[in-house]
Design a protein around this nucleic acid. Structure first.
Lengths: 318, 318
DNA sequence: CTGAAAGCGCTAACAC
DNA sequence: GTGTTAGCGCTTTCAG
C-alpha cells in the first residue's frame, strides 16, 4: 500500500500543508469548498497519518505498555482482557509484554518502548530486580495488585478483606456459627484475618482452617474432612476449589446452602453456571481499569496509592 | 524521569552527535578514550533513545500488530501467548487488539497504528467487512487459520486432516474397526473427511457420527449413547469434550483404551494430567509462529499461502 | 577519526 | 482564510 504524506496531499490539492492539516482535523479556518476537496482527495488516496511522526512531534502517544505475567489463570486473563477493551474504548492501544524474568530483557524492552509509551501498566507480581529497573526508565508505571514498595509508581491495590467481611456478615445474619476456610493463598489469609478483626462483637463465628491446595480437585477431595468438622459455612480461597466442593456436595446429597453455606473467591465466569450458583468475592476489575484510564488521561506523573475494595456477590450458595 | 537526547549527550561529552551515535552503537570510528567517556556519560544520565524518532527516520518499526478475538478458549490463548513470546525473543513487540467488531473502529485502529506497525498478525476468524478494510491499509497482514480470500495477505493455514489421519491409522494398526466421531465443528468435519479419503485401502474403519456440542459436559453426556453404539474408538472434536468422556468412563469403569480408544483435538494443557493421558491432535503452533517471524524478517510484502500440518500425539488413551 | 547537516512526517506558532 | 516554517530526536551521507 502506497503511503501518501500530508505534503504530497497538499501539492495534489494545490494548497498548503497547513490547510490540509486544518481540513483533516476539522478545524475552522478553511474555505468550505476547499475543505471538501481536500477531504475527498484524502479519502480517495487513502491518506493515513504517520503516528510515529505525530508522536515525535507531540512528545506523547496513545500507546500504553502492559506488562503481564501469569497467563495461566482465568482471572488474570479476564483482567487483561478487560484492560485491553477499556484502553481501546478510550483510543489507547496496549503494547503487550509477557514480562520476561531477566532484568536484561526487561530493560531492553523499556528502552525500545521509550518515546512510544508514556505509561506502563503492570499486572500482578514481578521480581524485585525488575521493579528496580522501573526507576531508571522514562515511563510512568501503574502497578496493579502489587504491594512492592517502589518510588514514583502509581499503585492500585486490592483490599481483599472488604468482600470477605461482607460475606461473613451475610453468613452471620443467616445464623451460621462455624466457619471453615480451605486453601493456602497468603492474600486470602490476610484478607480473612482483617475481615475477622473488623467484625462487630456478637458477630464472631467459630473458625476452623484446612490447609490445602486450592484447585478444583482439592475442593472435591476436602469434602469429607470438611463435613466432619461440623462447619455450617465455608470460605474457599478460590472459586475453582469451591466448585470442586460443590460437585462433591452434589454427589453426596449435601444440601447447599441448607447444610453448609459456600463462598468462593475470584468471581470466575463459571460461578453462575454452577449448581447452585456460587456466591463469591469479586475483584474490582472495572473500577481498577477505570482508574488506569483516569491516571493516563490526567497525565499522572507522581506515584500514589489507590485501594479498591472487593465485593461480596450473593448467589445461591449462601 | 528526565529524558536526555542524543544532542544533549553530545554537548555534555564535548563532541558531536555523530560520535555519540557511533559509540552507542558500537561502531568503529571513534577513539577509544572518547568512546569510553561517552558510554560512561550515557549510562550515568540514563540515556534512552526515542523510538518514535528512530522509526520515523528509518520508516519501519519493530512493533507488530496482533489482532485477536475469541479470548475465551484455551487454545487460542496458548497461540497468543506463544506468539507474544516468540516476537519478544526476536526483539519485536506486539501491539494487541481484541478486534472490535465494527468496521469503523477497526479502521480507526489501523490508522492509529500506521507508521508504527508494518505487520499485523490476525489470529482466527474475522467478519468479512473487517477483512475488506485490510486492503486499504498500509500494513501487511498475516492471517492465521483464516480461510477467507483476501488480496495481498499472507495466509498461514492449518491442515487438520494430517493429524487426524495419523490418529486413525494408529487406531487401525491397533486393530480398531469401528470409529465414532462426536462434536459439531465444521473444520473437524472437513479434516476427518479428508483424512478418511486418504486412508489406504484395507485401513478403512466403520464410521458413526454423533452430532453434539463439544464441551466438557457434552463429552460426559454422550457416554451412554456412545458405548451403546459398539464403537471401539472415538474421535472428539475438542479435548474438553474428550476429557468429559474420560470422566464418564472412569465413573463407569469403562477401560481406556482397552474398551475404547479415545482421541481428542487441540492438545489442551490438561491432556497430560487426565487419567489416562489423552491422545490428541496438536495445532502446529510453533511452526506457525516461526513462519510469522520469518515473514516479518524477510519483509514480506506479497501475499502467499502456507499450509501447516497438524500432528497426532499418542498418549495413553489410544 | 570527527563533525555538519539533511530530512523522516507531522504540528502549530507566526506571518500575511 | 491561507501559507511558511521551525522543530520533535534520530540516522546517515558527505566533507573535512
Amino acid at each position: 500500500m502506497a503511503r501518501i504524506t500530508l505534503k504530497e496531499l497538499a501539492e495534489l490539492a494545490h494548497t498548503s500543508i497547513r490547510s490540509v492539516n486544518r481540513a483533516l482535523k476539522g478545524e475552522s479556518g478553511v474555505g468550505e469548498d476547499r475543505r471538501a476537496a481536500i477531504l475527498k482527495l484524502a479519502s480517495e488516496l487513502g491518506y493515513v497519518p504517520n503516528v510515529a511522526a505525530r508522536n515525535l512531534r507531540l512528545r506523547r502517544s496513545n500507546f500504553v505498555g502492559v506488562l503481564s505475567s501469569n497467563y495461566g489463570n482465568n482471572i488474570h486473563l479476564r483482567k487483561l482482557y478487560g484492560l485491553v477493551r477499556k484502553l481501546e474504548e478510550h483510543a489507547y492501544f496496549p503494547l503487550l509484554s509477557v514480562a520476561p524474568g531477566d532484568v536484561e530483557s526487561v530493560s531492553r524492552m523499556f528502552r525500545e518502548w521509550s518515546g512510544f509509551v508514556n505509561y506502563v501498566v503492570v499486572l500482578g507480581g514481578l521480581r524485585p530486580q525488575v521493579l528496580e529497573e522501573f526507576e531508571k526508565m522514562p515511563q510512568h508505571f501503574i502497578l496493579v495488585d502489587n504491594e512492592m514498595d517502589t518510588a514514583n509508581c502509581s499503585r492500585l491495590l486490592i483490599d481483599r478483606s472488604t468482600g470477605i467481611k461482607d460475606g461473613i456478615l451475610h453468613l452471620a445474619r443467616n445464623g451460621r456459627s462455624r466457619l471453615a476456610r480451605c486453601g493456602n493463598i497468603p492474600s486470602r489469609e490476610a484478607g480473612l484475618r482483617k475481615a475477622f478483626e473488623e467484625l462487630p462483637e456478637g458477630r464472631k463465628l467459630d473458625f476452623v482452617y484446612f490447609k490445602s491446595k486450592a484447585d478444583f480437585e482439592d475442593g472435591w477431595a476436602i469434602g469429607p474432612e470438611l463435613m466432619a468438622s461440623g462447619a455450617d459455612a465455608v470460605f474457599f480461597d478460590t472459586d475453582r476449589m469451591a466448585l470442586g466442593f460443590l460437585k462433591y456436595a452434589w454427589k453426596n446429597r449435601i444440601r447447599i446452602p441448607e447444610d453448609i453455606s459456600v463462598i468462593g473467591f475470584d468471581d470466575d465466569p463459571m460461578d453462575t453456571q454452577a449448581c447452585p450458583a456460587l456466591s463469591t468475592v469479586a475483584h474490582p476489575i472495572d473500577e481498577i481499569n477505570d482508574k488506569i484510564i483516569e491516571l493516563i488521561e490526567q497525565r499522572a506523573e507522581n506515584g500514589g496509592d489507590f485501594v479498591f475494595a472487593t465485593k461480596f456477590i450473593n448467589r445461591e450458595s449462601t
